[in-house]
Amino acid sequence: MKLTFSGNRALILGGTCELGVFLAKEMIKAGLFPILTYRNENGCKNILKQLQSVKGKYDTFYLDFTDRLSLKSLFSGIHDDLDFLVDFAQGDFEDLVASANCDAVYRYFEENISFRAEVLKMAARAMLKKKLKKQLKKKYEKKAGESRARLVFISSAAAIRPNPGQGFYAAAKLASEALYKNLGIEMGSRGITTVTLRPGYIDAGRGKKYLQIKKDGALCAVPIKKAVTCKELTETILFFLSDSAKSFNAVEISMDGRLTSGK
């Protein structure tokens, strides 16, 4: 199946992770223009190294979830020209609810929920601005196709099936899912829609390290006895960005081999 896309500029939040870079490569192959965000110099170097063979076919921007000015710079830098957004960004924070440092908890939620709400506000307005321009063009030139924009949030099976110590991570993911869902409900009539994916164990990045430590133990609870591969996840994301998936909106989809829906 050949996927088609209404638009080509795709912002990847958390673009330095293995999945982010892999997705960028696949996007380029599909004719999209990925814009990857990084939090520090090492992250930027990693992107440049991984994508050196496709120089000029992507862009990078600094974005730190603790720095609101970096968000303004990002949207000013991309001139509000945005069709898609894929959100991998998520801070690490594991502790027991009854023992976590309260200041750290406040900081974590501010960075991973409040900041994300601001990201969504700016992204939705940029997408709306682009859509209105197209609408005006269509009015005067009697052409231009249907205008759509799509945001995909990469949540986690841990959001609904957390292990001890993952309460804050799960809370941040669920709150973010709610923001994405409502954005899709509110903006769907304007062609701006959202989808949340909840992958289970992923054979990439931190997930890969975890699986190596636990070996088959981790996959015992997964009915299909396998982890999600990098390729499967990126292909699924591309599908959800494509015109083929335009009827999905404001929905959470589990991609975990039924890990979270069984006993």
Binding site: R125, L128, K129, L132, K133, E186, M187, S189, R190
Partner: peptide, 13 residues
């Protein structure tokens, strides 16, 4: 409310 949001974005633009 969604029209007001669009109006704000259009005025900005």
């Amino acid at each position: 409310s969604i029209d007001l949001l669009e109006l704000a974005v259009a005025l900005n633009s």
